[in-house]
């Protein structure tokens, strides 16, 4: 089971993932992120503080979005990784390619707030 909550933090969008991001649930996250990208979102926080499981199907979606955002000079920050998921990010080499923050508030520090 997975739930997504999208919100606006000024010019920055945030998507909170609640529950499990796996082979059965990743398509709805993929759709949500593609939709945000298509409608012009270039500053995005993905809040994982309530995500308690991830598999490679879910990581694929994060990587897809990172590539898209980079291609458009956008900024993607992932925050709130629980310990086992932080470990999976580490094993995957994802800690070095993503902007990682402990929580949403600290994630905002990655953005240039003057940018449109």
């Amino acid at each position: 089971m997975m739930q997504l909550i999208t919100s606006d933090l000024n010019k920055i969008k945030s998507v909170a993932i609640l529950g499990r991001l796996d082979t059965t649930t990743y398509p709805s996250l993929e759709e949500c992120l593609n939709q945000l990208f298509a409608t012009g979102t270039r500053q995005l926080v993905i809040d994982c503080s309530q995500m308690d499981y991830v598999s490679s199907s879910g990581l694929r979606v994060f990587l897809m979005m990172l590539k898209k955002m980079k291609s458009e000079n956008g900024t993607l920050v992932i925050c709130g990784l629980q310990a086992p998921i932080h470990n999976v990010f580490e094993i995957s080499g994802f800690l070095s390619i993503f902007n990682i923050a402990p929580d949403v508030e600290k994630a905002l520090g990655f953005f240039d707030q003057t940018k449109d």
Binding site: S56, R60, L63, K70, I91, S92, G93, I97
Partner: peptide, 24 residues
């Protein structure tokens, strides 16, 4: 095995990551 875990994002492919988890 996942041979790309040190590459920059643009060159990363996700293939092999699942197998890498199993072995880890």
């Amino acid at each position: 095995d996942a041979d790309s875990v040190d590459k920059p994002a643009e060159e990363r492919e996700i293939g092999g990551l699942g197998i890498h988890f199993v072995k880890t």
